[in-house]
């Protein structure tokens, strides 16, 4: 299932890059026809489109995306592996932070339904969901770097990671908190929770042993794709904080019409996302015996 999906995504990307006006060799000025002819020949662009497609696919299937057109002498794979760790670092940190905050806030909000904490965290979550990254990021920089001088605005260091990670985590934390709250409220009303209480178990045990598993199932289905997206890098956050991650490179490659690099990154990302979806399916089985035994 993963492989054909990935190939479809790559085909669509390839088609889009081709249909979009412009090309990688044209700058402001038009090139003399002879030079253009030469370039086309060198990169095989003189062949009919289906042959080009065939060659491209054959390379992709072998995992060989060739060299970047813009950064000459660097293979696409090298470029991806050089920039991916930056995205992955912020991504994983943001993911962990979002889970910690989201799950805790969601569980507490569901326990103290309609309390001040509930209203507070629910409103904060609404805010987190409605304030876009490109507003939150600069805002945080303004407050914590330029007013308070607590944290550097953009540097690859531990302190420098704080603001991008928080910016990236905010929206996910908010979403996870909402999912957790709804999931827990639903589960804590269920019959088997009443049974657990009727057995004389204290609320902590009822919640942790009997409630939590069912309550976080909606979160699990969200976190797989979320983690993939976080690892892949988020264009806006990487731009705001000048992080040389995959998102930044991807935008650059699209603007450059750097076809091999665009395809390489898209292929990499789609496989990443699909692998995480698979992991989600597997972890369902761990959480829910009804699925495990089917």
């Amino acid at each position: 299932m993963i492989i054909p999906m990935a190939l479809l995504v790559i085909t669509l990307t390839w088609a889009l890059v081709r249909i979009a006006p412009g090309n990688f060799y044209t700058q402001e000025k038009k090139l003399p026809p002879a030079v253009e002819e030469n370039i086309k020949k060198k990169y095989g662009l003189d062949k009919p489109w289906y042959q080009q497609y065939g060659i491209m696919m054959w390379n992709v299937v072998r995992g060989d995306f060739g060299s970047s057109l813009k950064y000459e002498g660097q293979t696409v794979n090298e470029i991806i592996w050089r920039h991916f760790p930056y995205s992955a670092t912020i991504g994983i940190l943001a993911y962990v932070l979002a889970l910690l905050i989201g799950l805790t806030a969601g569980v507490i909000a569901s326990l103290k339904q309609n309390s001040i904490f509930d209203y507070g965290s629910t409103s904060l979550a609404m805010l987190g969901l409605s304030v876009p990254n490109f507003v939150l990021g600069p805002l945080l920089v303004l407050v914590f770097s330029f007013w308070l001088y607590w944290l550097p605005p953009a540097r690859w260091s531990l302190a420098g990671l704080v603001l991008p990670v928080v910016t990236l985590a905010a929206i996910y934390a908010a979403y996870i908190a909402r999912l957790t709250r709804a999931g827990m409220l639903e589960v804590m009303r269920s019959d088997y929770i009443r049974t657990a209480r009727a057995k004389g178990l204290d609320e902590k045990t009822v919640l942790l042993r009997h409630g939590l598993r069912g309550g976080i199932i909606p979160v699990v289905s969200f976190t797989g794709p979320a983690l993939a997206a976080l690892l892949a890098g988020t264009v806006v956050v990487e731009k705001v904080f000048a992080i040389p991650g995959l998102g930044n490179i991807f935008i650059q490659s699209v603007l450059n019409r750097d076809e091999p690099l665009v395809l390489g990154i898209v292929a990499f990302l789609s496989i990443l996302i699909m692998v995480f979806n698979l992991l989600v399916d597997i972890s369902y089985g761990f959480l829910d015996p009804r699925i495990r035994y089917e």
Binding site: D191, R194, T195, A198, G200, G214, P289, R290
Partner: peptide
């Protein structure tokens, strides 16, 4: 008192047991 001196069984056995826990776990915890 709950579960020890007064115990309760409910209408719907399909939903009254925790679907995520083994029968043994649910019996043993009492």
């Amino acid at each position: 008192i709950r579960g020890k001196r007064i115990a309760m069984i409910f209408q719907d056995p399909m939903t009254s047991l925790n679907p995520f826990l083994k029968i043994s776990t649910q019996l043993m915890e009492v």
